[in-house]
Nucleic acid binder design. Structure first.
Lengths: 205, 205, 205, 205
DNA sequence: CATGAATGAGCCTTCATTCAT
DNA sequence: GATGAATGAAGGCTCATTCAT
């Protein structure tokens, strides 16, 4: 059974995100794939190269799944609610790739920060993903406004940013605070959030 | 001029937050202090020890300043507004210690994540700081409710979490997205936020 | 010319026995083999590992040669005599391996003691070698009793222990006392020893 | 309570014999005496100096006690018997100094060997102690011969060497072989030894 | 293609030694 | 006298990288 370049990338992601760059040795990565260190050098010029390529590989997946999570045309309320269940969202990260690549949310945040430290030039790629995601959100709100589901006097860009920032921050705090119930707090916040933005003509719950 | 233990801690923080644990060599840290590596071992048993002690040192400062930033008894609106000016808040981190220790917000997040990876036992300290901070926020909202400044039907715990999470997440996104204007977006969000929570009797602006 | 694992073991023995564990640096050992320190880590996980493996290597040789030195079926007297020539026996150690590995007898005693200090779990291996050797001696005496070469009322186990202990102690004293003639004193002792144990029917010399 | 030079010597012996030269740090030795490293340098020029002086100190005690153990004028048989009880003799080493300085027999042998490796010039002192001890033994046998307690046709020098070597070797084997009963085997050997050397006119037991 | 031996630089750590106070 | 800060050399160890096979 040949080891493909993609398998190496996946295993690398798994090491880099759980062990951190410097603590992930090529020997171990190779060992986990039952090949030798030299084998990796056939596909990648250096460890740095492997690192950058594997983070890119991961970012593409994240971007794809982020896009997929934004579905136009369905009632916004239900979709939004799912974003506020912080523990559930965080749980998605582990399955995100369908490849058992990632640990939890904090692993990926750590990984993305560390790549910025080493390779500042990768900032633009991360930046673009955030931008695309928030743009998707914005369209979601615009669409709901058009359909009259939410109030028309709210700024869609502000809403998109507010939501995204809250979710990121909420998961971050959640990942540090083991005793905190992210779903419960998220629901509380969602209730207030929705009450504020829903169209006046909406049936109050 | 004697080099004190505190000077070492500060320089260590500065390295660990900007270069990451593994890339911060004792050689460099010592060199930046004009002492030799061996000198560090007078004050610290090991690199791990230095790392843990310096993160502790930093966390104590962060905790202190977080507490200080919560002032009861003044109009909530003005205080809140300042929290939403993300770029300004982020800027505070660099001066937080008054010691030119930190780079920017992402440095400290990165540092705190990395310490959790290496020393999970330090989670509780970080957790406590978040808990204390959010409790302070909660009291802020309760106080404002008592004074009639904001609506009384809102859940203070939810508000505290919402605010804290938004600020953290906002700064995180901001630190990645160089083109993003954190103050502008933050102001937008604040306006909506305040409109929602202010007491009905308040004069609309 | 490739450097084999066995060559490293031999050179290590030579250093560890003449310089002691802590004073034998991997740098020097590697240098003597014209490789670099890192090369040693290809074959051994650590200095400790190298130490243990090389002592094991030596012990196996010692055990083998000890077994070989016990020949059943030949006149006991001649064989015994050779054991009492302490200087000659001590001299055998240096050539024991045919590899110029050891210095003199005291080197090996020192090495074996030091390995016990660091790795008490290696005691059993040394113990087994002594036990096997003394058992071989015992059989030698039993055989000679059967053949009527020595008196039948002596305890073979006691004789084996007496002989072994005397030889060990004699060489030890000899190795410390440069002026002492081990062969001369050994011969004196042998004469008494043999006079005591020889069969009465034997022709007195 | 002032720390005297002798106290340092004793503590040093205790460390050097149980931990070995290189593993005994001046810091630890000083710490065990509740003084600082610098304090040691008031009495000793260097670690080497301390090492040599402390081994000298020990050797003087050993020499003294070895002399004391040889008592002329009492029945030889009883005295000799005590030398053959190997486990008991080995046990004496720990109490030898009355100062809780030494561990067991193997510690002292190890220490004496290691000092020879580092400072070959100390060989003569050790050599002299062995020589004096064997000379004492020789006189013991001569005395017993004079008194008619043992046969007059035996060579006292050979007997002294035989006895000393056996005891040294026996204890050495004993210290390695945990399962071996040194007293039992020693008694066996003594019985044979005494039978051989006792005067014919002696009452057989 | 792939292996595995070998390198070399860099890191953490220890510790005898010095010296100003 | 004695302390404690500081040095500097050395050692074990790791690992990305190279290269002959």
């Amino acid at each position: 059974m040949k080891v493909t370049k993609e398998q190496i990338l996946q295993k690398a992601i798994s090491f880099f995100s759980s062990h951190d760059y410097d603590r992930s040795s090529l020997n171990e990565i190779a060992g986990a794939l039952n090949i030798t260190k030299g084998g990796i050098y056939h596909y990648f010029e250096s460890k740095d190269d492997l690192f950058k390529e594997s983070v890119s590989y991961l970012l593409d997946i994240v971007d794809q799944q982020a896009s997929d999570s934004i579905e136009l045309g369905i009632p916004l309320k239900k979709l939004l609610k799912s974003f506020f269940l912080l523990d559930d969202v965080a749980g998605l990260y582990s399955q995100m790739t369908g490849l058992d690549i990632l640990g939890d949310y904090s692993d990926i945040v750590y990984l993305l920060f560390s790549v910025l430290k080493k390779f500042p030039e990768m900032r633009s790629k991360q930046e673009r993903i955030y931008a695309r995601y928030m743009m998707g959100m914005e369209m979601l709100f615009r669409d709901a406004q058009k359909r009259g589901e939410i109030r028309r006097d709210l700024d869609p860009e502000g809403l998109a940013f507010e939501l995204t920032a809250f979710v990121e921050g909420g998961m971050l705090i959640s990942s540090v605070s083991s005793g905190l119930d992210g779903n419960r707090l998220g629901t509380k916040v969602f209730d207030n959030f929705w009450k504020r933005i829903q169209s006046d003509s909406d049936d109050p719950e």
